[in-house]
Amino acid sequence: MARIIGGITTSHVPAIGRALAKELQQTPYWKPFFDGFLPVHDWLARNKPDIAVVFYNDHGLNFFLDKMPTFAIGAAAEYHNADEGWGLPELAPHQGDEDLSWHLIDALVEAEFDLTTCQEMLVDHAFALPLELLWPEGPCPVRTVPICINTVQFPLPSAARCYKLGQAVGRAIEAWESDARVVVIGTGGLSHQLEGERAGFINKEFDQMFMEKLVSDPLWATRYSIPDLVELTGTQGVELVMWLATRGALLGDVAKIHSNYHIPISNTAAGLMLMENA
């Protein structure tokens, strides 16, 4: 059976793409952010996952309001990045794993998670940048399965629902007849708000509690409704549901191997965590 070797959660911000394109990693502004990934690079080099299942939210590259799935999963052999409107260099394509995609689709629908299945799917910065951050030497050595959760149009799926989706994904991976080593990745958050008179809102106290509880008591955050989470973490801070889905997929108890928290990257409180099953 396939094995889940750990979970990695990180923020995603388009400005990271600009920093990579301009090679600003060691400038004073970016260094505390990029250096946070060094222990994760070591862990990945030692543990060598074959596949990454990635929870992320699309920002209007693949999906528009004409058809907006609450949960969508890729089932493609390859995933391409494209211009998101800012003319940044296109990020390298990522290899898919169609066998795991279809296994997950079968298992998740069976578990009453009725996802939209995508045999073609553009992946935006939220999917592609974290993979560049995790494997900066390139090319990305893992096959991937993207799972997209709607954070654009309300109502969003609840924190509790996203956690349960993660659990269903974790159980499905562990039941998959394969010797693959799978890492689960969640990208988004932490607190930030781009729009409105409250633009620039950050909540360090909540973020730090969230990171602590994600390890010890993951149901803690699922008590909050989505509007509660918007109030506490900002309109885009609510992307922390990707972290909950990732934690759910790890099933059981976990140990924190590494974390980093840095304010700000662009308008965002940037978080990073690496967890292993205890």
Partner: peptide
């Protein structure tokens, strides 16, 4: 409290229906 229509968050508009 879970209804995006009735919930008021200062300086924030939820992108609801």
């Amino acid at each position: 409290m879970n209804n995006a229509k009735t919930r008021k968050i200062p300086g924030t508009t939820l992108f609801d229906s």
